[in-house]
Each structure stands twice: as structure tokens, then as C-alpha cells.
Nucleic acid binder design. Structure first.
Lengths: 142, 142
DNA sequence: GTAATTGCAAATACTTTGCCACGTA
DNA sequence: TACGTGGCAAAGTATTTGCAATTAC
């Protein structure tokens, strides 16, 4: 959670051969400050990026960072794709209200790691990871 | 798995006030025969439906059936939405190859029911359900 | 007969790409 | 200087809707 996250991630990007651009810095800062996954549209419209660069630039940045394993692309049921910073050792599952669309990360420990290991062994899939989401109607929407 | 599934589901539809149309029958039969979720495009192009009706009809059928709880709409990471028949007492998690896009249902018991109950109690969300998917590269694609 | 359902076509929404200018290393 | 990046605009892909015609009940 400390502010030093951004510089560290940028260092990782640099190691991967990516250039340090203003857009990269602002995009990462925005994602780190956000406590939930964000869409391309949300990112492109966010304060740090709106005046900074074109939506196509944000799009290509998201592509590049996802390919390099800095970000992860999530489904989350909306028409738009969501992106989140991938931090080693960290994993989040989400609780989503199908009424208002609110997305919140779940704090409880994820209960699927054992099954994930089992699947990895039995199927031989490489680079296995999972995505777990809970959907329902929040008290406000009910 | 028996053939009687379709008539039963149609009966449920009728109880909900839906009309028994050819398109409805074929759509349900297609989904029952499929062992995995399908997209609107796949369904509209499937043998039973291709000559039967317009894609817009399939689209609206999927909407209606989803609203009435006969089907469930899933994310599954592709740009297109996936739909699956919702059978009482049945639940599937999926294993998806990010290379070739293969989707297969996981047989192992789902390990998140306890967490789901916990979330239901703590948050007060109504109609809570979850979606769990594993992503990775299958042996063939690796 | 009446309301639900359908077909066709047009409109959206979000994503993706081409091409040339620009900036970082 | 050279190659990764960025901007603008156009093309793609999947979804969603309007409206008149049709069909189930």
C-alpha cells in the first residue's frame, strides 16, 4: 500500500524494455490508487490521464502491460474489460452488485488454492490462475 | 443428463408465462446438448437454430430466459458473453485455455460455498452466487 | 382477438488497427 | 539516430433497439 509501489512497478517495466513515459506513470499511479479493477474507459477518463493522452494510447498501454504480466485483464461480467495491477503474492476475489455495478475486493482468504494446485497437477496446464467473483444485489439496491 | 430435461425446462418456461415457440425449444435443446456455456453467436449459428430464426430472436430469448432465471450469463473472459442452462442444485466451475479458448467444466466439488455463505451473512447481499474460472495454457498449446 | 414473439435493419458500445509524427534512450 | 510510443481517425466485432408483421394461446 505504500507510495513506493509505483516506482517499483515502473522499474519492473523498465527491466522489460518498456520506456518510461508520462502516460505509463499516470496509468500505473491511477491503478495503484484504485482499490478495484478499472475499465479502459474509466482509466482514459480519469483525472491523471484524461488530459494526458489519447484513449488509444491507454488501450495499447493496457495491452502491453498485460502481455508482460504487469497487469491482469478480468471479465467481471460487464461488457467492458477490467484491468488490475498484478502484485506478486497478492490476489483478490470480488463481490459485485448486479444492480448498481459496485465492485469491491473481498478480504477473506481465497479458498481455491488447493483446487488450483490439484488442477495444475491433473491437467498439466501451464501458468494457471483463477478468477473468482460473487454476484448479488447489495442492500441498497434490494 | 436424460432427454427429459428439455420438456421440464419448457414446462418451467410455460409456468413463467413464456410461449412455447420453435426457437425456444431448439435453443434449450442446444444448450442442454452442449456440455459447456455458449455465446450468442455460437447459438445463432448452431444447426438447430441457424435456419430456424434470426440472431436478434436468439438474443432476446437469451435475455428473457436469463431474466427469468432459466439461464445464467457468464463472463469467461472473451469479448462475447456466454450462457448456460441453470439447473437447480447443479453448479459448474470452468477451466479455460487462454491459447485455444477451450472451455471445460470442472468435475471437482466447488470449494467456495462456505465463503459464499459467509459473504451472504456479512454483507446482506441478496441472490448471491459465484463464478469461478481457471485460466492457463493447455498441454497442446504449450 | 390480443399480447407475446419475430425478422430485418439500423444504431450502439467498446475494442482494435493504420499510418505517420514524436520522444526516450 | 533508432525504435518504442503516441495521436487521430477509421474499421471491426458483438450487442442492443425500433417497428411492423406474425404467431401462440
Amino acid at each position: 500500500m505504500p507510495k513506493e509501489i509505483v516506482p517499483k512497478v515502473i522499474a519492473r517495466c523498465r527491466d522489460l524494455g518498456l520506456r518510461r513515459t508520462k502516460a505509463l506513470e499516470e496509468l500505473l499511479a491511477t491503478l495503484v490508487e484504485s482499490d478495484r479493477p478499472m475499465t479502459l474507459a474509466e482509466l482514459a477518463a480519469s483525472p491523471r490521464l484524461a488530459d494526458q493522452c489519447d484513449k488509444a494510447t491507454v488501450y495499447r498501454l493496457l495491452q502491453r502491460l498485460t502481455e508482460h504480466g504487469i497487469l491482469r485483464r478480468l471479465g467481471l461480467h460487464e461488457r467492458a474489460a477490467y484491468f488490475t495491477l498484478l502484485q506478486p503474492g497478492k490476489h483478490s476475489d470480488y463481490l459485485i452488485c448486479t444492480g448498481c455495478g459496485t465492485i469491491e475486493a473481498i478480504k477473506a482468504p481465497c479458498p481455491v488454492h488447493d483446487l488450483e494446485d490439484e488442477i495444475r497437477e491433473k491437467t498439466g496446464y501451464k501458468g494457471l490462475y483463477h478468477e473468482l467473483e460473487f454476484f448479488g444485489t447489495c442492500p441498497k439496491c434490494a
